[in-house]
Nucleic acid binder design. Structure first.
Lengths: 197, 197
DNA sequence: CCAAACGGAACGAACGTTCATTCCGCTCGC
DNA sequence: GCGAGCGGAATGAACGTTCGTTCCGTTTGG
């Protein structure tokens, strides 16, 4: 029975190795630009083995997307301190998002790159709501508390999220004179002043 | 000679039809996700004909990228009013960028999607500087005039550009409760307050 | 307690398909 | 009628996926 458990852990490791390899390659070269045997090689498994763990290349990219969307959601909301004044609430969201982007740059790039890609299925699309809805609610709250500009929360969210993505991409392109982490820290008050009333 | 001119215009139309078809398809499905014969069909030419105008698929995407980067640069800078106070200078840049995004949404998406793609050659990368440098200079100027926050211009540019991209993508995804043009108009003071001193 | 047989996971060569690119018969303007 | 330019079938490479085989941990009969 110990042996059985061990073999199951091996399988889980293998599956994870494939997901890790796919993350790197899909983030760097895109879905269509990445050959399945290359993913297998990077993961240290045979090409056929990959199909024991995922039904198809599409199933793989969907599993990867869902897994990282869930990770992002938990980074954002796990143990979130609810009763904070609006500025601190924003700071908490912002820093949690940035922490995710700094700790998992490939995952952040991957999620951004594959947002609304045609090969993502309905269930993967639904994961987006998991992240968007709670933030939208927070923004709506803060807006009614007269802490945010009197504009659609979706607009303010797009500005904030877009600014973070812009910084991550600028850092990737080597366009920033400082490390990404420092840029994101400096940008917090910048972005807050954008959306505050 | 009129005939010669006319046949040359025909050829130029064909080339343009191919570029237009490629823009739509590359923006929607990505470079690797788009088959060359599909581009040809959409352009209303034979698959072989495409190769009379472009050496390869890579040459096509590079020509497309350069052409639209140049169009963006000219939209931004053509007849730019130089001596304006900082706020008006920002407004001019911002509205010109937004006008381009609204008038050529596919081109905007395409440029964003293919930014720093591995199949773009050095000359295409160099086109980025064409857009970035003048804006960087303007930002540096405004910063020394104490109109902008005392942060790296590259950081502020990334925030502004990122915010615009964020709005465009949110509109594409149907996440905004108003048309893109209206959202961009509402976002101008939002973004200005982000970067102003 | 050992060895022989089993079961299923892993491998990677091989399959059919689809791709980018080429090539050649054809058309059409001069 | 002739040559430049076109179309789309042809081509070979590369793709996603499958399949026959190998390999190893476990079971089982002696």
């Amino acid at each position: 029975m110990a042996a059985h458990t061990e073999s199951r852990r091996d399988a889980s490791d293998r599956r994870q190795a494939i997901l890790d390899a796919a993350l790197e390659l899909f983030a760097e070269r895109g879905f269509h630009g990445t050959a399945v045997p290359l993913v297998a090689e990077r993961a240290g498994v045979g090409a056929g083995t990959l199909y024991r763990y995922f039904e198809s290349k599409e199933a793989l990219v969907n599993a990867l997307y869902r897994s990282w969307k869930a990770a992002l959601a938990s980074s954002l909301f796990e143990g979130f301190p609810t009763d904070l004044p609006p500025r601190a609430l924003f700071g908490e969201c912002y820093r949690r998002l940035c922490r995710f982007a700094v700790e998992h740059p490939r995952a952040f790039t991957f999620l951004e790159l594959h947002h609304h890609a045609p090969y993502l299925d309905a269930q993967s699309r639904a994961c987006d709501e998991l992240v968007l809805r709670p933030i939208r609610d927070l923004a709506e709250q803060a807006r009614h508390a007269l802490a945010l500009k009197d504009l659609a929360p979706e607009l303010l969210m797009a500005v904030v999220y877009g600014a973070v993505v812009g910084l991550v991409r600028a850092a990737e392109a080597g366009h920033l004179p400082m490390p990404l982490e420092e840029a994101l820290r400096q940008a917090e008050p910048v972005v807050w002043e954008a959306i505050r009333r």
